[in-house]
């Protein structure tokens, strides 16, 4: 199956929410030692809601598209609901079957988000 769908390529080549936030309340960095992909996620959280999100990083089409899609999905959401996000939610956003070798790429953004949420005081 072709994983390079229009959606994935579009988010890879024109990712949403790129750039660091000047007024971030929490940040987290995650990297994949196998391929060297690195992302830094900035969140501005107010009243337990993610008001703004931005990321800086580089990586493969799968990791970058999944981060871009995740950022779209996260903005404006409550922390409590984001803490429930599971890998399956990311695969659904991507809309393609992820092979075992690419799971880490697909979930890089989610694991950065989970790291950031852990650092956030309730």
């Amino acid at each position: 199956m072709d994983i390079y769908t229009e959606t994935i390529l579009d988010h890879y080549q024109h990712p949403h929410h790129t750039g660091a936030l000047n007024d971030a309340t929490v940040s987290a960095t995650e990297h994949n030692p196998l391929c060297g992909d690195v992302i830094k996620l900035d969140l501005k959280i107010k009243n337990n809601v993610v008001e703004k999100i931005g990321f800086v990083g580089n990586g493969c089409a799968i990791s970058q598209a999944s981060i871009s899609l995740l950022c779209d999905a996260v903005e404006g959401k409550k922390i409590s609901s984001l803490k429930k996000l599971k890998p399956k939610d990311i695969y659904d956003l991507l809309g393609v079957t992820i092979s075992p070798g690419r799971i880490k790429c697909a979930l890089l953004g989610l694991s950065a988000l989970q790291k950031a949420l852990k650092l956030t005081k309730n």
Binding site: D2, Y4, L34, C35, G36, G59, C60, A61, I62, R102
Partner: peptide
Amino acid sequence: HPHDIATIFNNEGIAIRSGL
């Protein structure tokens, strides 16, 4: 990204290494 090159090569039955 090199991983995407490797994935598309794999679709054609070709094993190449990608990454670091």
